[in-house]
Amino acid sequence: MAGDALLESLRLALGRKKFQKPSTPPEPLLVVRNWTMEERLERFRAAFEEHGGALHVVSSEQEARTLVAELLAGREALASGAPVLAECGVLGLAGVQSGFTDPELLGNAAQTVRIGISSCYSLLAESGEVVLRFTPEEPRCISMGLPIWVIVASRRKLLANLDELLGLNPRSFESSSETALIAGSERQEIHLILI
C-alpha cells in the first residue's frame, strides 16, 4: 500500500486537505524541580540502587581510576571512546582495550571480554535512570552488551528528571542513531562511578 494512498484516505476521513497545517498542539507541562546537587544525588542514589545498580561517589579523577582498577581486579575490559575515560586515565589501566574503529574487531573483542567501561549521556535523579546515546565513541556493545558494566561520569550529568532532559534540547535525539533510558537490568551488573 502506498503511503500517499493511506494518507489520502486519512485526510478524507478527517476532512483535511493536503499540506493543511494543524493547529498548535497542546503543550505538555514539564515538571521543573529546583533540586540542589545534593538533593539530586540523594534521590538518584535511592532510585538507582532500587533498580539494583551500585553507585560509587568519588571526589577526583584519580579516585575514579583507582576504583575502576579495583573493580577490574586484574580482569580484561573494553573501554569506549568517551573523553572522561581518557581524562581519568582509565584507558591506561592494564587489561583495558580501547580505541576501536573497526566494527569487526570490536565485535570479536566483545566475544571474549566480560567487562565494559563507558560513560553516559545523562542521569535522571527522580527515576534513577541512565541515559545512553549511542555514538561512534560510545557503541552499544561496550555499555549494554557485556555482563559487567562500569559507568564513569561527571556529576554534571545528573538531571532532575525526564522532563528536564526533554526540555534541554529536544532535537538532540536526532544526532545519533539511538538513545536509551536504562533503569537497571537483570542481565547486567551495573556500577556507576560519579565524579
Binding site: 573497526d102 555514538t135 561512534p136 545519533s176 542513531s177 533503569a183
Partner: peptide
C-alpha cells in the same frame, strides 16, 4: 526498565 528511541540505522562511524 528499558526505554529506547531509535532514530535511524547506525550512522557513519558508529561501530
Amino acid at each position: 526498565d528499558t526505554t529506547r528511541f531509535l532514530t535511524g540505522p547506525r550512522r557513519a562511524g558508529e561501530l
